[in-house]
Nucleic acid binder design. Structure first.
Lengths: 216, 216
DNA sequence: AAGCGGCACTTAACAGCGTTAAGGAGATGG
DNA sequence: CCATCTCCTTAACGCTGTTAAGTGCCGCTT
């Protein structure tokens, strides 16, 4: 009887499966037992590959980053503006691909030096464009934390694109804010059309960089 | 024997105590049993005041916000730049006051409409300065998510001001990035002097707002 | 061919978690 | 004096991350 033996696990396969599961159950439901079940294995088996759950989350964040890089086509001839647009749109898309993606990402650290290659490319492009290294770091990380903060807020309302978390009724909010007309009106502006608002916010940041560092 | 009876709890007192405890044990160690112990009560007693743990975290975030407002002195005659500086410096200070403050804050929703008053004041100031309401919303929330993202990253390295999380050895990082000279050099720029870098990032955002909306 | 070491996993168990159900003491009000 | 309401306790539930110990199988040496 050819009882096929499952190929042994490895860190990548575990992280892959965990990311798939994340989209179904969310970060709260992402237990080691559930991940193990998906891999046809018992929970303690995961401790052979990861020293603890955080190490697995770190690998998941790293995998998210790898997919982001794979999906972002960078051109050495990009202008610095194009580069900032590409990388931050790519980052947002990568985070939005997974339920609680921003939380997982910002709560973890990369395993190894995966991010060095892109970072080096960005910094070279920015310094070539005339910035000092500290300025280049400031520009890229300011855009980075903007995007991370933006998606964190966004996923608080939309766990996945198209899904809406409960407790965000715009009409009810407007009624609660009746004594504050601008705030009431702002609700519609805050909780809709995240795509456009991301673009506008990112444009503000990029515009600020150009103005401050005398670029273009 | 005058066995004093403890005054009954209320939501604020519980949230207060939980915030104090948060600074000692961090978000992971913030269990209902530990909070209850601090209040001289058993864990299930908390369920009289909160429907679940998330409701308590929401109250904690609300309390953080109240303290932020109390510590920030706003002037109706502020220029829009002054206002953005004050509110975002105040927000960062409020988040930094507690271990994992940014995580607690961004993972929770305010109870009630506490934030409406400040928001209304900000929006009025911005629209008076010549912005449309959508522009005012975009300006304030872009700065807001920048600050939130910044402190989230900051607290990943410095749980509390002065404390340093393990695993952030700059020399080791530099060695790991040996093949990427700019990235290696950037480490010193990224992981030090968060105060100054926050100011510079915030200045970039504010500069972008001024430039985009033709202010001043 | 036999034995052996190490890899990759299982079984069993532990303390601690959020949460619920049921009950009880003390004040309040009729 | 009993009923009611408030605020809390005791006991227990299922589930979590994690550790300890054991087991079967592979490749290697003798």
């Amino acid at each position: 009887m050819a009882t096929e033996r499952r190929a042994p696990l490895d860190r990548r396969r575990v992280a892959d499966t965990a990311l798939d599961l994340l989209n179904e159950v969310g970060l709260d439901g992402l237990t080691l037992r559930a991940i193990a079940r998906e891999l046809d294995v018992k929970a303690p088996a995961l401790y052979w590959h990861f020293k603890d759950k955080q190490a697995l989350l770190d690998e998941m964040a790293t995998e998210m980053y790898r997919r982001m890089v794979a999906d972002t086509s960078l051109d050495p001839a990009d202008t610095w503006r194009e580069r900032l647009l590409k990388t931050n749109r790519g980052l947002r898309a990568a985070l939005l691909r997974y339920r609680d993606g921003a939380k997982v990402f910002s709560g973890s650290r990369f395993t190894g030096a995966v991010h060095a290659k892109q970072m080096e490319s960005d910094l070279r492009l920015f310094t070539t464009a005339g910035l000092t290294l500290p300025q280049a770091v400031r520009a890229t990380t300011t855009a980075y934390v903007f995007t991370l903060g933006f998606v964190t807020e966004e996923q608080g309302v939309h766990p996945l694109p198209g899904e809406r978390r409960e407790g965000y009724d715009l009409d009810e909010r407007a009624r609660l804010m009746a004594d504050y007309p601008l705030t009431a009106q702002a609700g519609a502006e805050i909780f809709t059309d995240y795509d456009r608002h991301f673009e506008e916010g990112l444009a503000l940041v990029i515009g600020g960089i150009g103005a401050a560092y005398g670029l273009d």
